[in-house]
Amino acid sequence: MDRYEGFREFLRARQQSLMRSSYLLCGDPHQAEDLLQTVLIRVARNWHKLAKDGNPEAYARRALINEHISWWRRHRRHLPLMGPPKASHDPSVESVNRLALGQALDRLTPRQRAVLVLRYYEDRSVQETAELLKCSPGTVKSQTSHALGRLRVLAPELADLLNDADAKEAAR
């Protein structure tokens, strides 16, 4: 029996979604690919167990977050962004907001970045985010507030966008 039975199918179905999250966490396509590959190798090695009684995707997403934060600590000073300019950097075709958001995200701490990706991209609740980040719901709320505040300082042009997010947050 192939010990990776079902793993290939899982990957083909979910890797692009995971890649998008990885990309949002890293902000660099090559780092995102490396991060995802590292995490998926771990998923593969635990596939037998995960396929039987676990949720492989949840495991992978949790590992992405943890590994991202861990990588950032280990490699930040050693592996600068050496990739080519992102295709999105052509201002003639680029949304100003998207460009500003991408650049501002690059200047957040990994936990601040992760909390925004989880809350506003993956649309996770405070409770789910707290479980993924292994912290209290209160910490998630304060991290979210700090991260949004930092974005306001780093990218004032995003004010409308962030106010919109604030209103939604208050309604939750």
Binding site: Y23, E33, S88
Partner: peptide, 8 residues
Amino acid sequence: EAPQVDLT
């Protein structure tokens, strides 16, 4: 903007 990958 994330690149299309097949890491399988």
